[in-house]
Amino acid sequence: MQLYREMDTHLAQLDNIINLFAEVKTTGLNEKFDQLIMEEQTFVEQANDNINIKSEIERIDDIAKDNKHLVNHLAQTTDILSRQSSDLIEQVSKFTHSQ
């Protein structure tokens, strides 16, 4: 009888140890799973940030292209005004020399 009681006690202790290991294993896995979820969230946030950065770079590129067109137009307008100014100076000088 004593042997059976000791065996029952040892089996109960083994059962407790197994339950503890199972709990530790489950807790460890949950912690790793939580870490993976946090890393995934960080990855998603970084991906969204990269998408936003790409969009802003494209917007800046569009603005730069618009500015280039405006600068080219302004340069053409400046050339036209410069030629008109030279023509006007020439016409005025003819007028003043003829007087």
Score class of each variant (00 low, 15 high):
69 H>G: 03
30 N>S: 04
84 Q>K: 13
77 T>Y: 10
95 F>T: 11
70 L>R: 00
80 I>V: 03
36 L>P: 02
85 S>L: 15
81 L>P: 03
70 L>W: 09
75 A>T: 06
65 K>A: 01
92 V>Q: 06
17 I>P: 01
25 K>E: 09
74 L>H: 07
69 H>P: 00
35 Q>I: 11
81 L>D: 01
74 L>A: 05
48 N>P: 04
17 I>F: 11
80 I>K: 14
24 V>I: 11
96 T>P: 08
97 H>T: 06
41 Q>L: 02
93 S>F: 06
29 L>I: 05
34 D>N: 07
73 H>V: 04
75 A>N: 11
63 I>N: 10
77 T>D: 13
76 Q>C: 08
60 I>F: 03
31 E>V: 15
11 L>S: 02
53 I>K: 10
85 S>T: 13
4 Y>G: 15
68 K>N: 02
66 D>G: 05
76 Q>M: 08
52 N>G: 00
93 S>G: 02
88 L>D: 02
92 V>D: 01
44 V>T: 01
15 D>H: 06
33 F>M: 05
74 L>V: 00
81 L>N: 09
3 L>N: 12
19 N>P: 02
55 S>M: 05
25 K>A: 12
57 I>W: 05
9 T>C: 11
16 N>H: 14
85 S>D: 12
26 T>C: 10
71 V>H: 00
38 M>V: 09
33 F>H: 00
57 I>H: 05
82 S>Y: 14
81 L>M: 04
87 D>N: 08
81 L>S: 07
93 S>Q: 09
68 K>E: 05
11 L>M: 07
19 N>Q: 15
78 T>Q: 14
91 Q>A: 13
13 Q>F: 08
92 V>H: 07
23 E>G: 00
